[in-house]
């Protein structure tokens, strides 16, 4: 009896409740949607339109078609930023191998593993401004690194002032500052590797190296892919702060990456139209990779 009593009003409320649910649902997602549309999606389209103008300073600028893109093709600073990007991408295997190896070792039970995990991640919590300022002092010609190397009879190297070493220094510092993040991702992935598989391999008499290659690496494949995607996006779009304080893009253009060039063209050169064109190139460069990330992420949520 009690059941039918409560069931009746519930069904009656069904239609009303559903329309109320719809109303509130829209209300709840609206702030998020609005922020994303106003600050990211509309600007993306607007940015493309701007890239087709010769806007300078605050003047609107006239429509000039793809002239900005044609100028990019001739701009040596842009060429350099692209060459630097290619070199950066070429180092990606290191960005993946180093944290993977360390994560596997920690997972295999190196003494003090928990401690290493915490310490390795620490630099990733620091601002690129702080990391850059510290290394700017350490890597100077009369800096602490050269002083340290002198103990081994190695002569001073102007790490940041020499265009041959500046980009490599920048890459090394960024790698140092972020490998802890990838390490945590690998550790999370390793925790899903069934431990009885590793035990079984060991019982079979497999060496540590064999276990690596035949058990751990194959099961880690999706994680390796994910780290590769996240790292690529990171090096394409997350190095502004470090460049800004460590090298300011120099000497010359030797550490200028597209994201820094965008900033220079907007700020120092006051050419928003041209800066927008570089932005579009950067977007195309990373869109494919970012699409892969979004695919991976949405695969894991049932909406």
């Amino acid at each position: 009896m009690g059941v039918s009593k409560t069931k009746q009003p519930l069904r009656k409320r069904g239609g009303k409740a559903r329309s109320e649910e719809r109303r509130f649902a829209f209300l709840f997602v609206m702030p998020a949607l609005l922020l994303v549309v106003v600050f990211r999606i509309v600007p993306l389209i607007w940015g493309f339109v701007l890239s087709l103008t010769d806007a300078r300073g605050v003047t609107e600028g006239a429509f000039i078609g793809f002239d900005n893109y044609a100028e990019l093709a001739r701009d040596p600073a842009f060429h350099d930023s692209m060459a630097n990007t290619i070199l950066l991408i070429a180092t990606l295997p290191i960005w993946i191998m180093v944290p993977m190896l360390l994560a596997i070792l920690i997972h295999q039970g190196v003494p003090g593993g928990k401690f290493y995990r915490a310490v390795y991640f620490f630099p990733a919590t620091l601002s690129s401004v702080i990391v850059g300022s510290i290394f700017n002092v350490l890597l100077r010609n009369d800096g602490q690194l050269n002083q340290f190397l002198e103990l081994f009879g190695i002569g001073a190297i102007d790490w940041l002032g020499n265009s041959n070493t500046a980009l490599l220094s920048l890459i090394a510092v960024q790698l140092w500052a972020t490998f802890g993040m990838s390490l945590l991702i690998f550790l999370a992935g390793l925790s899903t590797v069934p431990s009885d598989m590793i035990e079984a391999a060991k019982l079979e008499g497999a060496s540590m190296l064999q276990t690596f290659w035949h058990v751990i690496i194959p099961t880690l494949r999706p994680i390796i892919e994910f780290v590769a995607v996240v790292t690529t996006i990171g090096v394409l779009t997350n190095m502004f702060g470090l460049i800004y304080v460590l090298t300011a893009g120099g000497p010359g253009t030797s550490t200028t990456l597209p994201e820094f060039l965008i900033w220079i063209e907007l700020g120092r050169m006051n050419r928003p139209g041209y800066a927008a064109a570089i932005s579009m190139v950067l977007f195309v460069l990373m869109a494919g990779i970012a699409y892969a990330q979004v695919r991976i992420m949405s695969r894991n949520v049932n909406v």
Partner: peptide, 11 residues
């Protein structure tokens, strides 16, 4: 997520 701030810096 595919639109980081650098990509829309000017607008």
């Amino acid at each position: 997520l595919m639109i980081p701030v650098q990509v829309v810096l000017v607008p």
